[in-house]
Amino acid sequence: MDCTDPSILSGFNWMLCYLTTGKHMALYVSVGTVLLLLSITAPVALAFGFGGASAARSRFLPLSWLGKGYIAIVRGVPDIAFFLFFVIALDQAFEWLRHQVKCPDWDEPIRQGNDFVVCAAAKLPLGTSPQWMHETYGFFLAVLTFSIVFGAFAANVLYGAMKAVPRAQIETAEAYGMSRRQTFWRILVPQMWVYALPGLSNLWMVLIKATPLLFLLGIEDIVYWARELGGAKTARFTDYPHGDWRMWYFLALLIFYLSFTKVSEVVLDRIMARLTKGQATAAGEAQRKAAV
């Protein structure tokens, strides 16, 4: 279709051209950003959680404290405070580390009044690097922040799941002469998922619903573009003048999230049914009876 002169278009064609402008493409790309964030954060957070839960179970006390501390520290405080905190804190931590390595002979203090000053070589990303580097770095910080916070939640869930595996299973493994490590990897880990899944699926839903907070971390995400594109535009600034449409953009986001949640629910239910198969739980037993 020809979108070169929108002023002569009307109705459906106008809408079609309007929804495919460059900035709308950026909006659609930012939906991809959200999905990318989810697809990186979920496994990384799970790994953090697994690490945290294993550490909390450790017989080596300091390690156990570390794991339990990690789980406990993210509770009790509004998570959004963590998001706002970690993004600056991580950024400063990285720059400080690089500063220590790259500029050992720097003698001025790093905190000067209200400023945080590191040498030019330690800046992240370097002042000379292109725009996309800055954006990628920002996104990387966001992923790390999400992973740390959700890792703690996941650690909590996995820790509970590890404790929920029937004691008899562990004892049987020990009776077979398995070492502690073997028991952990061959008996405990494969069996814990069915206990962890309800908690993890809840966490997944929460993670989906946390993605709009990317906006607060300074990422140009869907919330950013919805505000940007929805605002009233006069003919002086755009070929597609319109009133304040932000309400409709956010309605679209609302529907996007609702459908995403619905799809996840259906998929997670299937995974649960799959994992329950052959397990010594009430649901597993019900499945067995239904199949007979």
Partner: peptide, 19 residues
């Protein structure tokens, strides 16, 4: 509707709806 969507988006939507 209220459990399946982010509160953050609900706030935004409500604000612009009221506007």
């Amino acid at each position: 509707i209220f459990r399946g969507s982010p509160l953050f988006i609900q706030f935004f939507f409500a604000y612009f709806l009221f506007l």
